[in-house]
């Protein structure tokens, strides 16, 4: 399957993982009245993967996750979580799924430990005698042991987030779903979350983590699904997505206008970049570009291949509507893909 948007070609096979799927949605749609929150979402979460669900706020990440977990009944489409249809199979699937959705939810007048004890009481996989041990272990794991007996009311945002994570990790899980887990965390807290995700991954746990921050996904995930305006616009292995998109050449030159003029005459698309100019390599090879520049007597300091980068992809996917007028970054690509400039 291939997903195309704004000139980004996702290579075939990137969204068709070889292994079994921990979670899968097909044709997922959710409407609230006349508002379409999510439409035609076909999401694949391969077992053992760390899938980053990337999208700006309001792109439908949380709605998709809530349908995945059976909290919300889809208007149309189907969801399977750990092999069980959702929301009907929630009783079977959810005991093996840890989740932190829409921020941590705890009672302010109870201590962190009491909050977790209350949560643990409902855990089907915990026997009554194991509850205390499981709670203490989870608190230890997120680094909250010292603050366990303080009231949740007095917790900092980061502590609250970590307590929520502890709730998701009360029992060994097959899958962990984290909705914006680093929200409100300081850099140290963010690193801890990354460490925990890495540990889970190492233990073979499937992790689904949503974020509107690209760096977070880039740093922790093996797979990416990009949501935009309620639909999945790209998904696949992180490495493939990083390599995908149009290759380009970064040319460092003191005379950018002359360089761009020269390239334009050869019908090679280019655009201004901080380091100089970025030349699209879909229409021409690197030697051709350099030759064109040299022949036009443009001084060139340096030329190197730039990978498109998830950031570039993400920016192109999501800035589109937010910034219709300032499409300078995309225009070159669009032009290159569409009709050639005169």
């Amino acid at each position: 399957m291939s997903t195309t948007l704004a000139g980004v070609d996702v290579p075939e096979g990137a969204s068709t993982p070889a292994g079994p799927l921990a979670a899968r949605t097909r044709g997922l749609r959710k409407t609230y009245g006349r508002t379409v929150a999510v439409d035609q979402v076909d999401l694949d979460v391969p077992e053992g993967a760390v899938l980053g669900m990337l999208g700006p706020n309001g792109s439908g990440k949380t709605t998709t996750i809530r349908m995945l977990l059976g909290l919300v009944r889809p208007t149309a489409g189907e969801v399977r979580l750990l092999g069980h249809p959702m929301p009907e199979g929630a009783g079977h699937a959810l005991p093996d799924v840890g989740a932190l959705v829409e921020g941590p939810g705890f009672h302010p007048f109870l201590s962190g430990r009491e909050n977790l004890l209350r949560m643990a009481a409902a855990e089907p996989r915990l026997t009554t005698s194991d509850i205390r041990g499981a709670v203490d272990a989870a608190l230890e794991r997120v680094g909250l042991s010292a603050a366990a007996n303080r009231r949740y009311r007095g917790y900092s945002l980061g502590m609250k987030q970590r307590l929520g994570l502890a709730g998701a990790l009360l029992v060994p899980r097959r899958m962990v779903v984290l909705d914006e887990p680093t929200n409100g965390l300081d850099p140290a807290g963010t690193r801890e979350i990354r460490t925990i995700i890495a540990e889970l991954h190492a233990a073979g746990v499937t992790v689904l983590v949503s974020s509107h921050l690209l760096a977070e996904v880039e740093a922790t995930c093996t797979h990416v699904a990009v949501l935009h305006a309620g639909t999945v616009v790209a998904q696949g292995e992180l490495a493939e997505l990083l390599e995908s998109g149009s290759p380009s050449l970064l040319v460092s030159t003191p005379d950018t206008s002359a360089a761009m003029e020269a390239l334009r005459s050869k019908r090679i698309p280019s655009r201004l970049a901080p380091e100089g100019i970025r030349v699209d390599l879909t229409a021409a090879t690197a030697p051709e570009v350099l030759a064109a520049l040299v022949r036009a007597d443009v001084p060139v300091h340096e030329a190197r291949r730039a990978r498109t980068g998830l950031e570039d992809l993400f920016a192109r996917l999501t800035q589109q509507e937010a910034d219709e007028s300032r499409m300078d970054g995309l225009s070159g690509v669009v032009e290159a893909d569409g009709e050639a400039t005169p």
Partner: peptide
Amino acid sequence: QATMTARERAPRAPLTRLLRAELRWIFRRP
């Protein structure tokens, strides 16, 4: 598949434990 999984008994926390947790929560609230 769906009907089969639905027929299998899903694991559940004992009801008394839930009730106890609920009572503890209620009567801990100031």
